[in-house]
Amino acid sequence: MPMLKIFVGTMYGGALDVAEQIAPLFEAAGYETAILEQPTLEDLTEERPDLALFCVSTTGSGDFPGNFVPFARGLDEQSPALVGLRYGLIALGDSSYGDTFCGAGRRLDEMLEDLGATRLGERLEIDAMETFMADDAALPWAEEWIETQQLTVA
């Protein structure tokens, strides 16, 4: 059974809630899933998943949440080759912050791409100013992502 790892970067639990709501969709599509609340670079490099999904909220001035900083720092400092890694990305933010809206997700996307990873489909950006419950936007996106990227293995 292929493995999907969901890497979570969250400050108040919104991104974790999205991950927990989405995981059953991938289980139904034939994946073994793991939600990583304290992700490490080794979770990605030493036991590379068949598919990765990043659910990352943005804090402050476009920063990564505290639980995600060690992972992002590892990516930046170690620059592991991620050629062959397929991933999706859900970025959570607040458009009232202007230029830094979804800054952590956008920065992570650039980092992964620079290391050779391939994003499947478009990045989902969820605006807290427009969507009260992030999973209201994330669930339909994940269903469509599974379908359009032909990710079903069951």
Results as ranks from 00 to 15, higher is better:
residue 5 K to C: 13
residue 5 K to L: 12
residue 8 V to N: 12
residue 8 V to Q: 11
residue 10 T to N: 09
residue 11 M to T: 10
residue 13 G to W: 10
residue 15 A to G: 09
residue 16 L to C: 11
residue 18 V to Y: 10
residue 19 A to C: 14
residue 21 Q to L: 03
residue 21 Q to F: 04
residue 21 Q to Y: 08
residue 23 A to W: 12
residue 27 E to D: 12
residue 33 T to C: 15
residue 34 A to M: 15
residue 34 A to P: 09
residue 35 I to H: 04
residue 35 I to S: 09
residue 41 L to K: 02
residue 41 L to A: 02
residue 42 E to W: 09
residue 44 L to P: 05
residue 49 P to Y: 13
residue 49 P to H: 12
residue 50 D to H: 12
residue 57 S to D: 06
residue 60 G to S: 09
residue 61 S to D: 15
residue 61 S to P: 00
residue 65 P to C: 02
residue 71 F to W: 06
residue 73 R to P: 00
residue 74 G to C: 07
residue 75 L to A: 07
residue 75 L to F: 07
residue 76 D to T: 15
residue 77 E to W: 08
residue 77 E to I: 05
residue 82 L to P: 11
residue 83 V to L: 06
residue 83 V to C: 07
residue 85 L to A: 04
residue 87 Y to A: 00
residue 87 Y to N: 00
residue 87 Y to G: 01
residue 94 D to F: 01
residue 95 S to P: 09
residue 96 S to P: 02
residue 96 S to E: 04
residue 98 G to W: 15
residue 99 D to Q: 11
residue 100 T to H: 10
residue 101 F to P: 11
residue 102 C to L: 04
residue 104 A to F: 06
residue 104 A to Q: 05
residue 106 R to H: 14
residue 107 R to P: 08
residue 107 R to S: 14
residue 108 L to V: 00
residue 109 D to A: 01
residue 109 D to Q: 00
residue 110 E to Q: 10
residue 112 L to C: 01
residue 113 E to N: 13
residue 113 E to D: 15
residue 115 L to M: 09
residue 116 G to M: 11
residue 116 G to W: 11
residue 117 A to R: 05
residue 117 A to I: 03
residue 120 L to W: 11
residue 121 G to D: 12
residue 122 E to K: 04
residue 122 E to G: 00
residue 124 L to S: 01
residue 125 E to N: 07
residue 126 I to D: 08
residue 132 F to T: 13
residue 135 D to R: 12
residue 136 D to P: 07
residue 138 A to M: 02
residue 146 I to Y: 10
residue 147 E to R: 10
residue 147 E to S: 12
residue 148 T to E: 15
residue 151 L to G: 02
residue 152 T to L: 06
residue 153 V to D: 07
residue 153 V to E: 08
